[in-house]
Every structure is written in structure tokens, then in C-alpha cells.
């Protein structure tokens, strides 16, 4: 299985290795999409994790047992539809096609599962209709 998730590291664990254990002991393929980790500060990492269902579950249990909070990716960036003016300035900024213009309606659509939380859309949206939650 393959899953994009967000890992939240409390400040007391940011100096411990995690990716190493996920790869070495749980046989998971970890692709880091985005990371913001600083010593003694709360950290956050967006990763794509790939492996057997059992290994995946064991890896996640390991993370949680060490105080790492796991959340699904699509909850990280939200599209405030009622703030969106449907202009479409975002669609050429989003590098993964998570923001698309539906034609011929000319309606903007946000495909949450494609989003990699690069946050390029946040400031590219003139109406400030994209928000990061963390």
C-alpha cells in the first residue's frame, strides 16, 4: 500500500531518528515530500509511505508509541470554496494538478488526495481561499 501522510513531531523527539527505523526495521519505502524539523522545536514532515499493509501498520504504531502524531494529508490544505472567486490563477501554480479547472464549466476543483502540501497556492490565490491547517 501507498499512503501520503503528515507526521507531527513534538519538540522533545525532533532529535531522534525516525525515518531510519521506518526503512530499516519496518521495511517501508519513505519518500519525504516536505519537512520542517528544527532542534527542540515542534516539527512536521509530509511523507509518502509505501510497503506491506502489516509493515505499514507496525511502522505507524511505532511512530505513535514515540509520541508522533499522524494525520491524513488532505486535511492539511483546505479550499475555502465560499471564498474562492473561481478565477483559476492557482491552476498553473499547483505543481501536481491538485487544483484544476473543470471545463467547459470553468469551475475550480481541489483534489485533496493529489496535494503534496507545497503551499504554493496559499499566496498565489488572490482571494486567499487556500488555507494551511497545522
Amino acid at each position: 500500500m501507498k499512503q501520503k501522510i503528515v507526521l507531527h513531531f513534538p519538540s522533545i523527539v525532533t532529535e531522534q531518528p525516525f525515518t531510519y527505523h521506518l526503512i530499516k526495521e519496518y521495511n517501508l519505502m519513505v519518500n519525504i515530500l516536505k519537512a520542517n524539523i528544527n532542534p527542540r522545536k515542534e516539527g512536521r514532515m509530509v511523507v509518502e509511505v509505501c510497503g506491506d499493509q502489516e509493515d505499514y501498520q507496525a511502522g505507524m504504531d511505532f511512530l505513535q508509541s514515540r509520541g508522533v502524531k499522524i494525520s491524513p494529508l488532505e486535511q492539511e490544505i483546505v479550499w475555502l470554496e465560499d471564498r474562492c472567486t473561481q478565477c483559476g490563477a492557482c491552476v498553473i501554480i499547483c505543481p501536481v494538478g491538485a487544483l484544476v479547472m473543470e471545463r467547459p464549466e470553468m469551475k475550480v476543483k481541489f483534489v485533496g488526495e493529489k496535494c503534496i502540501v507545497c503551499e504554493h497556492c496559499i499566496k498565489a490565490c488572490p482571494a486567499r481561499a487556500m488555507e494551511v491547517l497545522y
Partner: peptide
């Protein structure tokens, strides 16, 4: 990309 909204 458009800055003007056709839908609106």
C-alpha cells in the same frame, strides 16, 4: 490561467 472568473 485566468485572473477573471468566467463562472462568476
Amino acid at each position: 490561467a485566468s485572473l477573471s472568473s468566467y463562472l462568476k
